[in-house]
């Protein structure tokens, strides 16, 4: 069964500078118990996708398409109903977890606040639940009386994960959970995410720009470029047989441990502007394989059985 099914999602924002086309016809689905990765560079629209599912960015937004969560259409629900779903059925680990909690409230009170706004649990049960969740992310429950700023970066991230898991939601969206953390802490957080999903039987959408770190936990991966899904597949498919030139370049720009100097190339050029509409392929200017057809015709969309949005898919 699909926990989340997004079809043809298009999101534009109207500003003084014009209309920003942020997401273009995105299809994405998450099955039960699955960990799905959404990878893309800054400004490609990853966070907008998460925010749109949670309906946190409705200002100046023009949206079309469908978002189905557990056979319920989220696009037609009113704000109050979505608020009920957010937190209890969809957990969210926001991007800047370093300063996502209120510094003036003790951690425990912020956990209680979340529970109270969704259920009528007696106090004793609440305290037990919080202690159990904190223990799960290996934070001493006695530290619930501390303030958020008294924790280290990795601990804060774990607190945020604990908070998003608190009410055992069916889906957790983690936005850049490892960015801005140390390398050793990163791998611990990754393992923690994986364990939590196994223990709580939830599904997870992990958003990141770091393909190599995140790919360790994902079952399936979507690669996003300029508001479009350009490639999708299982982890093995993406890591061993990348087919879209962007995915190939992302993989080859990884730095590995090497004693001998080898030249690694990044991806030249800049991501395209969201203000313009592209007639051809949006990766055109940075692609080695680009030819005339890329300029004049739109590449196939990543919908249904199409796994790669490139004209040359299947060749070479």
């Amino acid at each position: 069964m699909q926990v989340l099914k997004i079809q043809g999602l298009t999101v534009d924002f109207s500003t003084k500078a014009g209309i920003h086309h942020v997401l273009k016809n995105v299809d994405l689905s998450i099955g039960k118990g699955e960990i799905v990765g959404l990878i893309g560079e800054s400004g490609s629209g990853k966070s907008t996708l998460a925010m749109t599912v949670l309906d946190l960015n409705s200002r100046n937004r023009i949206v079309s398409g469908s978002i189905r969560f557990m056979d319920e259409e989220l696009m037609t629900l009113d704000k109050e109903k979505i608020r009920k779903i957010r937190g209890s059925h969809i957990g969210f680990v926001p991007q800047s977890s370093m300063n996502a909690l209120n510094p003036l409230m003790r951690v425990k009170r912020q956990f209680v606040e979340t529970i109270k706004s969704h259920t009528d649990m007696p106090l004793q049960q609440m305290v037990e639940l919080i202690a159990r969740t904190l223990a799960m992310v290996s934070i001493d429950p006695a530290r619930g009386d501390s303030f958020f700023y008294e924790f280290s970066g990795g601990q804060r991230q774990r607190l945020m994960i604990a908070l998003s898991m608190l009410l055992s939601p069916e889906l957790i969206i983690a936005d850049e959970p490892t960015t801005a953390l140390d390398a050793t802490v990163q791998s611990k957080i990754i393992d923690l995410l994986k364990n939590m999903v196994l223990q709580k039987h939830t599904s997870m959408l992990v958003i990141s720009h770091d393909l190599h770190t995140i790919s360790r936990v994902c079952d399936r991966i979507y690669i996003m470029y300029a508001g479009k899904i350009v490639e999708t597949g299982t982890r093995e498919e993406i890591l061993t047989r990348p087919r879209h030139p962007y995915t190939q370049k992302l993989l080859s720009s990884r730095l590995s441990l090497m004693a001998e100097p080898v030249k690694v190339n990044g991806i030249p050029g800049n991501p395209p502007s969201v203000l313009k509409e592209y007639f051809g392929c949006s990766f055109l200017e940075r692609c080695d394989r680009a030819s005339l057809v890329c300029k004049t015709e739109k590449p196939p969309e990543c919908i249904g059985n199409v796994k790669v949005a490139c004209h040359f898919e299947g060749e070479s």
Partner: peptide, 10 residues
Amino acid sequence: DCSIGVDILN
């Protein structure tokens, strides 16, 4: 991003 970071290192 890692693809841009590599350029800075180069």
